Amino acid sequence: MKKQIFTFCLLFLLFINASCQKKDTKSSEIIKPEFDKILDSLNVKGSVLIYDLKNKIYYSNNFSWSKMGVIPASTFKIPNSIIALETGVIESDSTIFKWNGEKRRFKKWEQDLTLKKAFQVSCVPCYQEIARKVGVERMKSYLKKLNYKGMVFDTLTIDNFWLEGKSRISQMQQIDFLKRLYFSELPISKRTENIMKDIMKIEETSAYTLSGKSGWGMRNEINNGWLVGYLEKNNSVYFFATNIEKEETNMDEFPAIRLNATKEAFKKLNILN
């Protein structure tokens, strides 16, 4: 009888301990009105979401926006590149996409591009070629394997579903995916992971390294811009997903605004000086 009581007490304590540990690992959310001021000064609206991994805190000016699904646009080039490498559709980051000589939307796309360069200049035709080669069945299979949800496509939309249509991803989901990539929790080869971490680098200084991917799509006929990624500094990592909207005025500044908004938010948190 004593043995049974002891066993019961031990199990109960283990249960309580496990429950406490689970509670301790839950992340908190802190609203930062300062981020709103940054966006207002840049004449845009939206949300900057930053996740402080060490302290398990999400910071944002608008958590409702950060949990809302939006077309992923060119941020989908991250999973698209992973799938291309894992399936062998693309051999390496130095694989070349041959330009066929046809006029493209941007001059920087009108040349032969390696995978690395195509990713960094966000060459849409290059990644449409990848998607067509991967095909519907393999794309669906790998997205399920990567737990990258919310993509809607078929044979007719395989090469544009991340740019238009019903595909949706939230800022919270973007950060979840990036965390799993960063901490080697995706079911992919180490080689693919290393290639991705290299081609995603945006800025590398003596103080920090900023990695990620931008995206530009439309939501309700309004320009919608993404910048997702992570910042490494002093042996710490911070994940971010910025999603903003801007009316059709002086759109030449739109790409820079996403980066400026994100970096200014990091400054408000005293992470960047």
Rank of each mutant, 00 (worst) to 15 (best):
T114V: 12
T242A: 10
A84C: 14
K144A: 12
E29M: 14
N235F: 13
S64W: 06
K197E: 05
Q174M: 10
F239A: 03
N235D: 15
S19A: 14
L227I: 05
V124R: 01
I50W: 03
Y230M: 02
M200G: 05
V228G: 00
A207F: 12
G212M: 07
T249W: 10
L113D: 03
D154C: 06
E264W: 10
L115R: 04
N80Y: 03
K32Q: 15
G101V: 11
S66F: 05
M200E: 06
L113F: 10
I222Q: 11
F119R: 05
E204F: 11
P255A: 11
L11N: 10
N17T: 15
D198A: 13
S170Y: 02
N243W: 02
I130C: 07
A256N: 14
K133T: 04
M200I: 10
Q171E: 10
K268F: 13
N224K: 12
T114I: 12
K140R: 14
I16T: 13
S94G: 05
D93F: 08
K190H: 08
N17P: 00
V89Q: 01
N147Y: 09
G212V: 06
Y59W: 09
K149E: 10
Q174F: 04
S74A: 13
N220L: 14
G165W: 02
E232K: 13
L210E: 01
D24G: 00
F35A: 04
R168H: 06
P72G: 09
I83N: 01
T114L: 12
N250T: 05
N194I: 11
N194K: 15
N55C: 12
K190Y: 07
E264N: 15
E221I: 12
I199S: 06
K116S: 15
D159F: 07
